[in-house]
Design a protein around this nucleic acid. Sequence first.
DNA 1: TACCATTTGTGCGTATGTATT
DNA 2: GAATACATACGCACAAATGGT
Lengths: 240, 240
Amino acid sequence: MLRSQLHVQVRDHILELTHQRKLQAGDQLPSEAELSQAIGVSRNTIREALMTLERDGMVVRRHGIGTFITPVPQHLRTSLHQVLPIPELIASSGFEPHIKNLKIAVAQAPSEAYEILQATSNDPLLSISLLYLADKRPAIHVTYWLIPSLNIQPSDWNTFDGHMINFVERLMPLRIHHTVARIFAVTATKQLADTLKVKRSSPLLKMVHTAYTADGQPIYCSTSYQDSDLLEVTVVRQRK
Amino acid sequence: MLRSQLHVQVRDHILELTHQRKLQAGDQLPSEAELSQAIGVSRNTIREALMTLERDGMVVRRHGIGTFITPVPQHLRTSLHQVLPIPELIASSGFEPHIKNLKIAVAQAPSEAYEILQATSNDPLLSISLLYLADKRPAIHVTYWLIPSLNIQPSDWNTFDGHMINFVERLMPLRIHHTVARIFAVTATKQLADTLKVKRSSPLLKMVHTAYTADGQPIYCSTSYQDSDLLEVTVVRQRK
DNA sequence: TACCATTTGTGCGTATGTATT
DNA sequence: GAATACATACGCACAAATGGT
């Protein structure tokens, strides 16, 4: 295993400085030329690192002035442009994540799942339902549906740790490239209200997630329900 | 006025090809070297263009294979990482956007608005409420609150066309750098139900948007309500 | 106003590494 | 192994934006 690319090392170096609070929100970084000389890599490499940091919203670069640590609350940084597994999402909201309830089945799925996964509508789909807890309170109820061709064995589920992306990538030679989330407001059914421990017919946030490879092939989709007052959904969008 | 930068021209050139359907979802682009020679710019410039296209989710680049048009439905492209004004959002969902109802006031605002805008809590804030229509159906009800220091004159409102970002940037020498949206599910109040023409106590999607400059200074915030079945909210998140 | 130093932005050329077929 | 294509990295020159003299 080679050590990682230079610009990633530079990136990590700068992130490390922010974690050590040597660089704080709003602070100006040394100029590209200074960083280049101090670290001993070319200015282009510095620029590459700064560009990825900017893409991910960690720094703001201003022509003719300099590069600054983005003044955005720390907890938002994690959710900028990334796909965040639910346990990490819960953790980044300041709660202790747990997974409580698993139900695995190979069964007929809602027709919507077949459409999304481009599967023939009579194949039974592997599905798994779970309840993510935040500080032992029910927070998100999720049901995943996986495309049939994955061929996952029952024993594989022992290795499932709540990160669906990691799970399928560890088992299969594929890579999730992006996810699409569609967001709705719904009213809690009796069953959902019981599961999530909210009042009957409270409003819930429903999200339909689909994970795709770079080819655009759907790998799995999920439907999740959550109390949006307990666990906020935040989307940071950059311009340009 | 100078012509734009080379890599932007290259980017636009490629986008133009996709609009003309000469390049479609999933198609492979010519190699960097070919593009470089065909267009007559250096390979670095091609790479710069391809990188911004990748950042915005329009293409997928695969090491050792090539660059491909991202196979994502066209209507999602617009919402990838951008901040989209509501009228354009409605248009990209296939509806005709209209703005119906404006109510402008300088008044006390909810305490949340003062917190978000970091304003002293007794100043009256300029607020504007409007109803965005999609094909003449009420779609989104929004109330904006602007920071006091903008000093907008009543006459300025004549130039307001429903794009709040454009509006404030045209009037003031500032630039909105990013927005943060917090998303909730709520139950329609009687008033909201009437305005949006939905049943009493239907579930509605509530979004609290805040627009910031690169300094992290909030410029305005808004609260919006919408029927998520009429107008879906979609978030595409990329990995890496 | 004009000019300057600083800093990021753009663009070119080149060489080499790495992944895929 | 060879061919192809993208990835990384270096060095250089000049443009453009900003802030101060």
